[in-house]
Amino acid sequence: MAEQLKADLFLDLKGLLCPLPIVKLSQAIKDLPVGAIIEGVATDPGVMADVPAWAKASGQELISIEQQGKEYRFLIKKVK
């Protein structure tokens, strides 16, 4: 993961199942300024498909997404 980037907000989405990780992400990004970075960690493997699809559909930038053991971590940058 891009360790040099500092997240403005950390979302702990562990234990949440689809669609809750995306719902929480959508709600959280509304309150952030353009350029802000959200780091999220989830345990639902569905986020590996859902987060990139949401980023594309919502016009946000997916910086990275990766699996680390049983967790899935992602970085999203708010661009609009």
Rank of each mutant, 00 (worst) to 15 (best):
G40N: 10
I65K: 06
E39V: 00
I63D: 07
D8H: 12
K77R: 15
A7L: 01
P52T: 06
I65H: 08
P21N: 08
A2C: 08
D44R: 01
V34K: 13
A7V: 00
A7K: 11
G35R: 01
V51C: 05
L17S: 14
P33L: 05
P19I: 09
I63C: 07
V34Q: 13
I37W: 04
S26T: 11
G40E: 06
I22T: 15
K6A: 11
P33K: 12
K80P: 03
G15W: 10
V34S: 08
I63F: 08
A2G: 09
Q68H: 10
K70E: 15
K30H: 09
M48T: 07
P45S: 10
T43L: 12
D31M: 09
G69R: 03
S58I: 02
K14E: 07
G15A: 12
L32W: 07
L25E: 02
E66C: 07
K30D: 10
T43P: 09
P33D: 12
F74I: 02
L25H: 07
M48G: 02
A57V: 01
V51R: 06
L62A: 09
P19H: 08
D44I: 03
L16I: 02
P21E: 06
A57R: 13
Q68W: 00
L13Y: 00
K77S: 04
K6C: 04
D50P: 01
L11R: 10
T43A: 12
K30N: 06
K30M: 12
E3S: 14
K56W: 02
A42F: 01
L25C: 09
Q4P: 01
T43Y: 07
I65E: 04
A2M: 13
E61R: 14
F74Q: 05
I38Q: 08
A2R: 13
G69Y: 05
I65Y: 03
K6Q: 14
V23I: 15
Q60N: 13
L75M: 10
F10Q: 10
P45R: 08
K30E: 15
P33R: 07
P21G: 07
P45F: 09
A36H: 08
D8Y: 06
I63N: 06
Q4T: 13
A2T: 13
Q4L: 13
S58M: 12
L32A: 07
W54G: 00
V41L: 05
G59L: 06
S58Q: 13
Y72I: 00
I22C: 01
I37C: 02
A49S: 14
Q68P: 00
K77P: 01
M1C: 09
L75D: 01
L75W: 04
L20Q: 15
A28F: 08
G69L: 06
D31C: 03
K24Y: 11
V34N: 07
A55N: 07
A55M: 05
Q67R: 15
E61C: 03
S64R: 05
L75T: 02
Q60I: 02
L16D: 09
K6D: 08
S64D: 15
A49I: 13
G40F: 04
V41E: 14
K78P: 01
R73S: 05
M48D: 00
K70P: 10
Q68S: 14
E71R: 12
M1Q: 11
A53P: 00
D31T: 14
M1L: 14
R73Y: 04
G40R: 07
F74D: 05
I63P: 02
K80Y: 03
